[in-house]
Simulated scan of single mutants.
Amino acid sequence: MANTFTLLLIGATALTGLVWLLDSLLLVRFRRQRVLKGESSAGKAFDAETINKLMAEPGWVEQCKGIFPVIAAVLVLRSFLFEPFQIPSESMMPTLLKGDFILVQKFSYGIKEPLNNHTLIPTGHPQRGDVVVFKYPEQPTIDYIKRIVGLPGDRIIYRNKELYIQPACTEGQTPCPQLQKVSQTFLGDYQTDPYPMERFAEQLGPVNHKILKIPVALDQVQNYYHQSGNLQDEWVVPEGHYFAMGDNRDNSKDSRYWGFVPERNLVGKAVFIWISFEFERPEDSAMPGWIPSAVRFNRIGGIQ
C-alpha cells in the first residue's frame, strides 16, 4: 500500500509537472500567435481584456499547474523529510497504541530515493533503543514498526522473557564487552483482555522505555528464527543488519521469528505522535468501526 501511494504520488507529480512544462515552453506560444493573428486580421491591437481572454489557459492546464507545486511539495516532504504512519497493531504497546498516528523522520538513516529505498546520501545509523519503521523483510511492500535491540555484531539472547545483549567488540577494543542482562524494573500490572499483563521499565542503551509481558504466556522458542551455529533463542546480528523487537514482547512478530532487518529496508525513525484516535465502542453501536470514538489528546508528543 505504501509503495502504491508513492507510485501514484510520483506519477501525479510527473504528469502535472509535464503539463506545466509543456504550457510554459509550447502552448503559451500558440496562444500568443493566436493573439497576433487576431490583431492582424482586425487591423488593430486588442485591448487588455481581449488579450487576457485569448491568452487564458485551458481549464485542464490551469488545474494541473495549480496542483503541481502542492503535490511536488508533498512528494519531497514525504520522501525525504517526514512521513505519516498509522499504528496498525498492538505489538508496540505501551509505547504506541493502535490508533496512534505518528511522524517518521525519513532522513535519520539516509536520504533515500522514494521508490526503491536506495540510499542516496548516508546521514546516520539506528542506535540501540530507536523506534524505527522498516520494510518487512519477508514482504517489503509492508511497513513494520519495532524497536532496535541489536546492532551489527551484537549477540542477542531472549530466554525466559529476559533479554541479554553482548555488544559487538570493535577493532582494538580491550577488553571486549561481556554478555549482560538488560535492566528491567517491574512497574505493576497492566490490565487488558484477554490476558493480564505486567509492565516493566527497560533500560536499552541510553533509552528508558516501557515494555509489556504476559506472565502466563510461554516463549514460542520452537517458532524462533534459527541462525545456523547458535541456539534457538540466540542470535548474532550480521553486518549491515539489525535485530528489532516489539515492546509488547508476547504479542509481537519480530526478529525473533523472522530474522534480521537489512539496513536497506530502513524507512526512518519514529519521532512524534501527532494525533491518537480511540475506536472502542459497544458491539451494538450503529457507528462504523472505522470512525473514531474519541481523541486521546494526552498521547500527543514525542516517542521514547
Rank of each mutant, 00 (worst) to 15 (best):
G229E: 07
L18V: 12
P69V: 11
T13D: 02
Q180H: 11
G188L: 12
P140Q: 14
A14G: 14
A14I: 15
T192D: 02
I165Y: 01
R159M: 04
P140S: 06
K53G: 05
F5N: 10
R155Y: 04
T50D: 03
P215A: 08
L218R: 10
H226T: 04
H125F: 07
D247W: 11
R299F: 13
S89L: 12
L9N: 00
V267E: 02
A270P: 01
S108R: 06
F107E: 01
T170W: 14
D154C: 10
S228R: 15
L18H: 12
F80N: 03
Q191K: 14
Y158R: 13
L25N: 07
V70Q: 01
I111E: 00
D100P: 06
W274I: 07
D189V: 08
L36P: 07
G124E: 02
K161M: 01
N251V: 09
Q127P: 07
L115G: 03
L231P: 00
F297W: 14
A2Y: 15
L204G: 00
V61W: 06
S255N: 09
G11I: 04
S41H: 11
G43C: 09
V267P: 03
R281M: 05
G99N: 12
A72C: 15
Y195H: 10
G66M: 06
Q222P: 02
T119C: 14
S183A: 05
R128I: 04
R256F: 08
A217I: 11
L103E: 00
D247K: 11
S276H: 09
Y136T: 02
S276G: 03
R199F: 04
P262T: 01
L266M: 12
I275F: 12
I300T: 14
V35T: 13
L21E: 00
I211C: 02
V295T: 15
I87K: 13
K269E: 01
R128N: 04
F279C: 03
D23I: 09
I142V: 15
Y190S: 07
G302A: 13
